[in-house]
Design a protein around this nucleic acid. Structure first.
Lengths: 333, 333
DNA sequence: TGACTGTCTGTAACCGCTTACTGGGTATAT
DNA sequence: ATATACCCAGTAAGCGGTTACAGACAGTCA
C-alpha cells in the first residue's frame, strides 16, 4: 500500500461504510492511478462469491446459437448482467453426459454464483442437484419437471393473439406447426390457439409436431399443405420453423399470403425483410432477459424475489404474411 | 482427508506424477464417492490460472448475436473449449467505454487466462494493454492495427471463388455489396473479386459499402439495381447482407436467379431453405473455431504456436441463386 | 478531568488449493 | 553392512483478498 493500510483498501473497493471520506478519496485515487484491479480468484475465495453467472441453453441442431430466440436472449442477459457488474459464463452442453460433467464441475467448483437455464435443458436429476446444492438459478421457461423460479412469455396468450388475428382475417381452417410435444410451452401454445378457435365455434386446428430442424419443418408443412380439407393459414408456433414453412409453401407454388397465411410465434430481425414480411407474435425478449437477471440477482443476494414466476405478455407485429383466406380446395399444386 | 494426506490429493487431481498407483486409485475413489469438486477460486488463486477464456465479439445492431457468423463461431469455440476443460466467459461489450471498464476488470482481475477476440473489436489502446499485460489472446480475423496471433478465412480466395463462379455462369457486370470500408477483410474480399474480373478482362465491379443493417442493405441494393449499365449479378460480401439483398430484389420485382444472380460470402443454415437456396462461399467455421482454440491453448500453456496466423480456405456451396445472365437493360422495374 | 461513546483504521485469521522442499523407506550399488 | 539414489508422501508457506475483532483517537457529557 502506498500510504495507508490493507484491510482498509478492501473496504473502499467494496464500498463498505466505516471509512473516512479523506482516506477513501486518497485510496481511490491511488487505485485509479495505479490502474489496480483486484484479483478475481482471491476475492472469490475469500468472499465466497465469484460475481459470475452461468448461462445454459439447450442445443438445437448443429449450432446451438442459431435459433430465433436464444441468441437474442443471451445478448440481453449478457448486457443486463454486465450492467450489474456480473460476468456470464457460457455453457452449451450437448449430451446429458456433458451436462453431468462440465456443468457439475462448474457448479460444485463454485465457479458461478447462480445461473440462468433453459427450462427444457434438464431432466430432474441435474435440477435436483442444483437445488440440493442450493445454487440460485432461474429458468427461462416453465419446466414440467420441476418447480422453481422462472420467467416466461405468456405462451397461451401469444397463441391466442396469433389465432385471433387469423380468425379476424376470416380463416377457419388453421394448422399449427408446433415444436416437440414434450415441451410444456408447445402445449400451452397449442391450447391457446385451440381455445380461440373453439370460442369462435371453429373446428379444432390440425396440429403437427416437429423438431427444430428446417428440413423436417419443410416435410411437415408439405404434409399440412396436402391435407384435406385444406387449411388456409398456418400458425407456426416457433420461429425456428418459419424458414422451413416458407420453403415448403414456395416449393408447392403457394404464395404467402395470397394462397396461405402464416403467423409466427417468435419474431426475428430478418422476418421484417422477407417478402412478404412475417407477421409475428414477438416475445418480449428485453423484458424477459431483464426479469431473469433481476430475479437471479435477488436470489444470489439471498433475498426472496417478489414472485416465483414472471410471465410477460407478447405482442403482435403485423406485417404482410396474413391475408384473407382464398379457396385453395381446387388448386392442389 | 478420509485416509491419507492433503498435498497428495492435489497431485492426483492434477495428474501430477510422483504418486503411487495404489494411493492414486484410493484417492480417486474417494473423490468420486464424495462427489468432490475442487473450488475453482482457490485453484485459481494458488495456481494463477483460471482455466477460463474470454470471448469478445463486436456488436452489430441491436442484438449482437444475430449475425451469420459469430453465433456459429461461438458455438464451435465453446464446444472446443469444453472439450479441453476450459470455460468460456462471454463479453458482448457495446461502447468503447464498456470495453474499457468491464473488459479491463476481467483482464486485469485475471478472471481469464486468455481470450479470443473479434479483430474489429479493438482500437489500438485496448490491444496495447492486452499485449502489455501479456494476456494471451488470438484474434478472429486480421487486424489492420495490430499484429498478433490470429485465425482467418482466406478472404481473397473466397471472393475469387465467388467471382469465378459468377464469371463461369457468364456474368460480366458484377456488383459487390460489401461491409464497412474500414474492415481489412472487406478490402480483401473486394480485391479478390476485382482481381478475377481483371484476369478475365472484365470491367471492374461496382462496389457499394454498407453497414450490417438490413434496412441499409436494402437501400444499397436498390441503388445497385437502379445503376446503369445494369449488373447481372451481385456478390454479397457478407452473410448479414443477404436478406436485405433479397428483399430489395423482390421489392423491385426481380427474380433471383432469373433476373439477377446472388452469391454470398458466408453461409448460414437457413440459406439452404430460402427459395431459391443461396449459393454461398462457406467459411470453414469448425476449422476456424478449432484453430483459434488450439492456438489459444498453446499460448496459454506458454508455448509458441507453430504459426502466427492460420488462414483457412473457404469453399463454394452451390445452390440456386446463380444462373446465366439475362439482359435486364430494358426492364427497369 | 475522567469515563464513555462512537468513528475510523490496523491486525490477523482464514478462504481452499498448489507447490517447493523435506524426510522416511526401500531398492541398488559398493 | 553402509552408502547412494530414487520414489513417495507429508509439511508448510504462500496465492491476494475479506472480515471479525481489537485498538487508537477524538469528541461528549457529567
Amino acid at each position: 500500500m502506498a500510504h495507508v493500510s490493507k484491510g482498509t483498501v478492501s473496504r473502499v473497493i467494496n464500498g463498505i461504510p466505516g471509512v473516512g471520506d479523506d482516506t477513501r478519496r486518497r485510496v481511490m485515487k491511488l487505485i485509479e492511478s495505479l490502474d489496480f484491479h483486484p484479483n478475481a480468484s482471491a476475492r472469490g475465495l475469500a468472499a465466497r462469491k465469484t460475481n459470475t453467472m452461468g448461462f445454459v441453453i439447450p442445443h438445437t441442431g448443429k449450432y446451438t446459437l442459431t435459433s430465433t430466440f436464444w441468441p437474442m436472449f443471451l445478448t440481453v442477459v449478457t448486457q443486463e448482467a454486465a450492467a450489474r457488474g456480473i460476468n456470464v459464463l457460457l455453457s452449451t452442453a450437448r449430451a446429458e453426459d456433458d451436462v453431468d460433467s462440465a456443468f457439475r464441475t462448474i457448479l460444485r467448483g463454485r465457479r458461478i454464483d447462480g445461473a440462468i437455464i433453459g427450462a427444457e435443458q434438464f431432466g430432474d436429476k441435474q435440477l435436483a442437484e442444483l437445488l440440493l446444492k442450493s445454487l440460485p438459478f432461474v429458468m427461462m421457461g416453465r419446466s414440467a419437471k420441476i418447480s422453481s423460479y422462472y420467467v416466461d412469455v405468456d405462451n397461451a396468450l401469444g397463441a391466442r393473439i396469433a389465432s385471433e388475428h387469423l380468425v379476424a382475417k376470416g380463416h377457419s381452417r388453421i394448422a399449427i406447426l408446433a415444436g416437440p410435444d414434450w415441451l410444456p410451452y408447445v402445449d400451452d401454445r397449442i391450447r391457446g390457439a385451440r381455445d380461440v378457435l373453439r370460442e369462435h365455434g371453429l373446428p379444432d386446428p390440425v396440429v403437427v409436431h416437429c423438431s427444430y430442424d428446417t428440413a423436417e419443418a419443410v416435410r411437415c408443412v408439405q404434409g399440412i399443405l396436402l391435407s384435406r380439407p385444406a387449411v388456409s393459414a398456418i400458425f407456426v408456433a416457433a420461429g425456428d420453423l418459419v424458414v422451413g414453412t416458407l420453403k415448403a409453401c414456395a416449393d408447392m407454388g403457394l404464395n404467402v399470403p395470397h394462397d396461405i397465411s402464416v403467423v409466427s410465434f417468435d419474431d426475428h430481425p430478418f422476418f421484417a425483410h422477407l417478402s412478404p414480411g412475417i407477421t409475428a407474435v414477438a416475445q418480449p425478449i428485453e423484458e424477459l432477459g431483464a426479469a431473469a437477471v433481476q430475479m437471479l440477482v435477488e436470489l444470489m443476494a439471498g433475498r426472496e424475489p417478489e414472485r416465483r414466476a414472471m410471465i410477460i405478455a407478447p405482442h403482435l407485429v403485423e406485417r404482410g404474411s396474413c391475408a384473407a383466406p382464398r379457396d385453395r380446395e381446387n388448386t392442389p399444386r
